[in-house]
Structure formats: structure tokens, C-alpha cells
């Protein structure tokens, strides 16, 4: 759809969650997603790019 920086998540009804997980695990997963998003925002891109790994420090 042309969005330049994309972080894939697990399901339409819960983009930053996963009800299958325990609440601690889910919060950790959410944090991971937002960290990936921050990493994506700090990364130069030239075309729609998917960020599905964790940032390398």
C-alpha cells in the first residue's frame, strides 16, 4: 500500500498485542514491536520496507 516503513504484527484485531500470550509475555511482545518501529523510523529507506527482525545494536 506504499507505506514506507512497515512492522508486521500478528492479527488485524490486535496490531500491538497477541491474546494467546500471558499478559507479561504480551507486554514484552508489544514493547518489542514498538522498539522495532523506533528502529524503522531511524533507518533510511527508499521503498516500502518490512522490519520484521529485531534491531541490531
Amino acid at each position: 500500500m506504499g507505506a514506507p516503513r512497515i512492522v508486521p504484527t500478528r492479527g488485524i484485531p490486535y496490531p500491538t498485542g497477541d491474546p494467546e500470550l500471558s499478559s507479561e509475555q504480551e507486554r514484552a511482545w508489544r514493547r518489542q514491536l514498538v522498539e522495532r518501529a523506533l528502529h524503522a523510523l531511524a533507518t533510511p529507506v527508499t521503498e516500502p520496507t518490512v522490519f520484521d527482525g529485531d534491531p541490531v545494536e
Binding site: 484485531p13 490486535y14 491474546p19 508489544r30 522498539e35
Partner: peptide
């Protein structure tokens, strides 16, 4: 367009404010 039961039980699943605030407080 989808069942909102999961979003309504835990709204941070749509807007991740809890972890974003945490990252803000940590300075990230």
C-alpha cells in the same frame, strides 16, 4: 470490520501507549 473483544479487553493492543510511555520514561 473485526471483532473488537480483544481490543476492548486490552486497549493497548490497538494503541501501544503502555510500552511507548515506558520507552519515553527510559529515554528511548
Amino acid at each position: 470490520g473485526f471483532s473488537t473483544q480483544w481490543a476492548n479487553a486490552e486497549p493497548n493492543r490497538i494503541l501501544p501507549l503502555d510500552v511507548a510511555r515506558e520507552l519515553e520514561q527510559e529515554g528511548a
